[in-house]
């Protein structure tokens, strides 16, 4: 049954990768990669149960946080072309 769940997660990952490759705009790709990150968190947790080693959950926790930071950083970079000071004059910097 755990195998079936991980198969479902893998199928969804393939769909996300399809969108990341095909996606017409860069935002589609970021969205797909973000969804892929969530799926990775789920897959790591399920794999921990599949192999009977719940220590994998720590990796899943860290990956959830890294995924969030990564999406924010890439969105910000694509929007402003840099990570530093705000470019628009007002509060555009704190996204």
């Amino acid at each position: 049954m755990m195998g079936a769940v991980s198969a479902a997660v893998l199928v969804t990952m393939v769909m996300a990768v399809f969108r990341a490759i095909k996606g017409p705009t860069v935002y589609d790709r970021i969205l797909a990669v973000n969804a892929f990150g969530t799926l990775t968190v789920v897959l790591i947790s399920v794999y921990g149960f599949l192999s009977g080693r719940p220590e994998f959950l720590d990796l899943a926790l860290v990956y959830a946080l890294i995924n969030f930071i990564g999406t924010i950083a890439v969105s910000k970079y694509v929007e402003f072309s840099h990570m530093g000071r705000p470019s628009g004059g007002d509060e555009l910097g704190d996204i």
């Binding site: 970021i30 959950l57 899943a60 924010i72 969105s75």
Partner: peptide, 28 residues
Amino acid sequence: VKLGLIIIFIMFTGPTATHALARAAGQG
């Protein structure tokens, strides 16, 4: 407890990331 923490993290960070992306897409 760890699984619950993962749920909470995803629930708190997911909408923030989506909003950041939506805003970037809207302004881009």
